[in-house]
Amino acid sequence: MSQSHKDILKLEGVSKFYRTRGNRYRRGGGTVVALSRVNLSLRPGEIFGLVGESGSGKTTAGRLVVRLEEPDEGRITLDGVDITHLKGGGLRDYRRKVQMVFQDPYQSLNPQMTIADAVAEPLITNKVGDPADRLERVLGVLDTAGLSPAEDFIYRFPHQLSGGQRQRVAIARAIVLEPSLLVADEPTSMLDASYSAQIFEILQGVRDQMGATIIFITHSMAAARYLCDRIAVIYHGHLVEQGPAEAVINSPSHPYTKALIDATPKFGRCEGVPTYGTYLPAPRPAGEQAGCPFFQRCALAERLLCSATYPEWRQVAGEQVCLCHFAAEGGQSPPPPEECRLGG
């Protein structure tokens, strides 16, 4: 990609493993791969969607970016500066630029802290301004986050607010330092559907007015389409498809992306969205370790090739790339010959 020097954030070959401890049923410890050799680069001012199911590693990716965790392999750079193993003061400076909105607003605010204190916390820890300045900024961001009149909210405790309001407080807190990168980890999944639109609107405002780059982590293709400029689809820790949001959703190339689109409720305003049927309802026996990560569930897989060989990234169209042996230019993967196809 030609403009790589302009990228604000880069993940290069990032992997993260969790060691599980043995217990009485499963002797000995094992390793769970949360992320496997992930490469990503974000452009300034874009909303980048990371789409996947729970356990796909999308949240882990977000936590690595804000450095709540350290990757086991690979490197992460922000504006060309390696932040993979930052500590102490360097890490604090980094977090002035990179903030996060967590999934569950019922859990991400300290129940014993008033809204004013919670939102002002990043300012206090980074020693910004005096109390009066801080208050002004707190009122300002609460307003930006759609909590107005802000004066009504600052004396309250989180349990006196609705879920949607709490999430807006969490966003206010994340943008009070005017970060250049914001990680939003499924900010609407714990909320009523009717609140999502509000949150989306606020996030768009944060990008448009503050020029922040946003990583939007979600399980919803529809939400990603609405909000994001580019998206990446992640499956069991492996990125499988990446590209402009519109292209990936209108002409998905990877069988897993297609399965996600199949699974999205389509009632109303979705005429013309095809059904792909690429997902095996029951998994087939696992292939080799080195095979395609989607092999077990892929209806299009070819046994010999897909079970044993890790696919390569292929360009589908323009910037859309796909990790599939059968991905081809034009967006559609040709179905493999009938005799190679495996039964469900």
Binding site: S196, A197, Q198, F200, E201, A222, R225, C270, E271, G272
Partner: peptide, 15 residues
């Protein structure tokens, strides 16, 4: 107020 997979990306109407 909920986004869809197809059709125009009309602005959502938050309540």
């Amino acid at each position: 107020s909920f986004p869809t997979l197809a059709g125009p990306k009309s602005k959502l109407t938050p309540i």
